[in-house]
């Protein structure tokens, strides 16, 4: 399959006075053409940092320590500011979590969407009024001819998120990074937005990296799922395989919670996500893992291929080669 994005050994740290936050600590991941790749993780697992890195939007104090982010074979971490700018918004679009604060309150939404065209095609924003209206139709904003003149505070949350989505798809990018695009919305609106993203993917054959803490949502829309824990990927695989047969103990725990209603009482994951300043040695999940072995606190498991699936666990396909 055709790779759109290839992440290799990516480490992104934040140098803070309290210490170094290892937000992304050795991530390898591919994104294929036209797929929806879900990245699931708790808050503080580094998934938003990963989103910003892919979109080329990292700002200090975030620092790339090592690794490559190859977009169509070009390492976007090594691009000049100008080269990066011509990719941002044109080849890679990003949708953020909170539609309220990600729009500028003092400009009309039509103007803010038109800026994408201005940035990549030049000329006056007014020239692109028709394109913006068409975009608004595409993301199902009612009464688009009037809505382009609305200010963000005059729109509902769902509407604002549609505006942000229309910005991200304006130049028909090859890749859209959606960082918790539905978390700030009502459940009904959530479903509509997810449906919209799915349609966009089919229509534009765009790849979407869908980042969320909501694994249930990913089971519905993602083709593949990558599970992130404390700055590392613990399992990557096809959605139905992950659901049917999770291999990593962390994934197992997450899936068992989802199955709660259908089966019996879930086993809650004890403890909480570790600090990214002082992550536990060895496997980062070992202090919370029900299947923990003595060596888990010493050996940091690699992400290895197990029958087409990637898992990082000493119990699974690791050095002792055992099954689950």
């Amino acid at each position: 399959m055709e790779k759109v994005l290839e992440i290799l050994g990516l480490r992104v740290y934040y140098e803070l006075p309290q210490g170094t936050v290892k937000a992304v600590d050795g991530v390898d991941l591919d994104v294929f053409k036209g797929e929806i790749l879900g990245i699931a993780g708790e808050s503080g697992s580094g998934k938003s940092t990963l989103a910003l890195t892919i979109a080329g939007l990292l700002r200090p104090p975030a620092k790339v320590i090592s690794g490559k982010v190859l977009f169509r074979g070009i390492d976007i971490l090594r691009l000049s500011n100008d080269e990066l700018r011509s990719i941002r918004g044109r080849k890679i679009g990003i949708i953020f979590q909170d539609p309220v604060t990600y729009l500028n309150p003092i400009y009309t939404v039509g103007f803010q969407v038109g800026e994408v065209f201005e940035a990549h095609r030049g000329g006056k924003i007014l020239k692109y009024l028709n394109e913006v209206i068409n975009l608004f139709k595409a993301v199902k904003i009612g009464d688009p001819e009037r809505r382009v003149y609305s200010y963000p505070h005059q729109l509902s949350g769902g509407m604002k998120q549609r505006v942000l989505i229309s910005m991200a798809i304006a130049e028909k990018p090859e890749l859209i990074v959606a960082d918790e695009p539905t978390s700030a919305l009502d459940v009904t609106i959530q479903a509509e937005i997810v449906e919209l993203l799915n349609e966009i993917r089919k229509e534009l054959n765009t790849s979407i990296v869908f980042i969320t803490h909501d694994l249930a949502l990913l089971l519905e829309i993602a083709d593949r799922i990558a599970v992130m824990y404390a700055g590392k990927l613990v399992e990557v695989g096809k959605t139905y395989e992950i659901y049917k047969d999770p291999l990593h103990p962390y994934t197992k725990a997450l899936i068992s919670v989802l199955r709660y209603e259908r089966k019996r009482r879930p086993t809650p994951i004890k403890g909480s996500i570790p600090s990214l300043i002082n992550p536990p040695p060895g496997c980062r999940f070992h202090p919370r893992c029900p299947y923990v072995l003595p060596k888990c606190s010493q050996v940091d498991p690699k992400l290895v291929n197990v029958n087409g699936r990637y898992v990082s666990c000493l119990l699974v396909g690791g050095s002792d080669g055992g099954g689950s």
Partner: peptide, 16 residues
């Protein structure tokens, strides 16, 4: 603020 990140994500020039 977050909306500045959006502006950058559009690919606008720093000056703008």
């Amino acid at each position: 603020s977050n909306h500045v990140l959006t502006a950058l994500a559009k690919g606008l020039k720093d000056r703008i």
